[in-house]
């Protein structure tokens, strides 16, 4: 329903008026309206008694009272309207994101069902082939590996969409919990090791100091950003991928390095753009959605961190001198100062 305040105007006003101001306006309006009403009601008493000759005396009080009443009533009404519109807008956003997440989870679960079946059958076939005691033809193993590798792809894709929905929600805040950063990196390395091996890549990781300790941040966001970076590296590395976890006084840093051909300087500014892929600049068909790095960058920003890219392309002289490195830096302690 539109109560006479047009939507755009309301939206602008909502932005300018904060909750406290709206409350003052409402209360002030109500007081004014009450005073006005009292004046109108008391006008026969305050003014001269009504007589045909001196009607003028009663009217100023009545007129003023009525004016004050309407002014107050309008102020109160408008402030109440704006407040409710604001609440509707905030609440609406939140529930939209929540409802989408709920739908999405059900959808992801259902969509995962056939994949779980396929993956299960593939592992069953592998086990049966192993039981025969004969060597499995290389081609068959490769085919089975190919199916197996779709699982991490699918996991990342689903997670990317989920995070994308979550990023749309302005009111969502990153979680702050004690996180064993080394364990998060180790889990990612474990997940990508078989994939790297399959592609003849060497994946190594290490952390310094060896006992890295806990940081305060969002574990799932950390996992998600680094997963995207490692996934990206497996696509472009020539032989090697390195994940390094270090720290300074205020931040911890995760660098994902690969010895791939690198990124052209002119493209470096675009790597975090939504939908950008290297194929796009070469006018080839896109091999990926181009969402991974965009999400990684947006998510690290939300967590109070930074994601930087650095790359070197070979200049012809030394062919081994090319690489791409992404460095994620996040605060060691992302708790609000009061909670520390």
């Amino acid at each position: 329903m539109n109560y006479g305040i047009d939507r755009t105007t309301a939206a602008i006003w909502i932005k300018f008026l904060n909750n406290r101001l709206l409350k003052y306006l409402r209360n002030g309006g109500a007081v004014l309206a009450a005073i006005g009403l009292v004046l109108v009601l008391l006008s026969p008493v305050i003014g001269e008694p009504i007589s045909p000759g001196s009607l003028w005396w009663i009217e100023p009080v009545a007129y003023i009272g009525a004016g004050v009443f309407f002014l107050g009533a309008i102020a109160a009404f408008v402030s109440v309207q704006l407040a409710s519109r604001r609440q509707e807008q905030n609440g609406g956003d939140r529930s939209w994101s929540r409802v989408t997440q709920d739908y999405f989870d059900t959808f992801a679960h259902d969509m995962g069902r056939p994949l779980r079946r396929i993956l299960g059958k593939q592992r069953e076939v592998r086990a049966l082939l192993g039981e025969t005691g004969e060597a499995t033809p290389r081609m068959v193993t490769e085919l089975l590996d190919e199916i197996e590798q779709q699982a991490p792809n699918f996991r990342l894709m689903i997670e990317n969409v989920r995070v994308l929905v979550d990023l749309e929600d302005e009111h969502a805040r990153p979680a702050v919990e004690p996180v064993d950063a080394a364990a998060v990196i180790r889990n990612i390395a474990d997940r990508y090791l078989p994939i790297a091996r399959e592609r003849d890549l060497e994946l190594v990781w290490w952390c310094e100091p060896a006992e890295f300790g806990l940081v305060y941040g969002d574990a799932s966001a950390l996992d998600h950003v680094v997963t995207n970076l490692v996934d990206n590296a497996t696509k472009f590395a020539a032989e090697q991928i390195e994940i390094r976890l270090t720290r300074n006084d205020s931040h911890f840093l995760i660098r994902v390095w690969d010895d791939g051909l690198g990124i052209a300087e002119s493209h470096l500014v675009h790597v975090f753009d939504r939908g950008w892929t290297p194929e796009l600049s070469a006018r080839r068909e896109k091999q990926s959605s181009g969402l991974g790095l965009y999400i990684a960058s947006s998510l690290s920003e939300r967590c109070g961190g930074d994601l930087l890219v650095e790359s070197k392309q070979s200049t012809g002289g030394d062919l081994n001198e090319h690489h791409a490195a992404f460095t994620l830096s996040l605060p060691l302690d992302n708790r609000p100062t009061a909670a520390r």
Partner: peptide
Amino acid sequence: FRSEGELVPFSR
């Protein structure tokens, strides 16, 4: 043992 991909850096 901790993780197959874990490297022991020179510093250690």
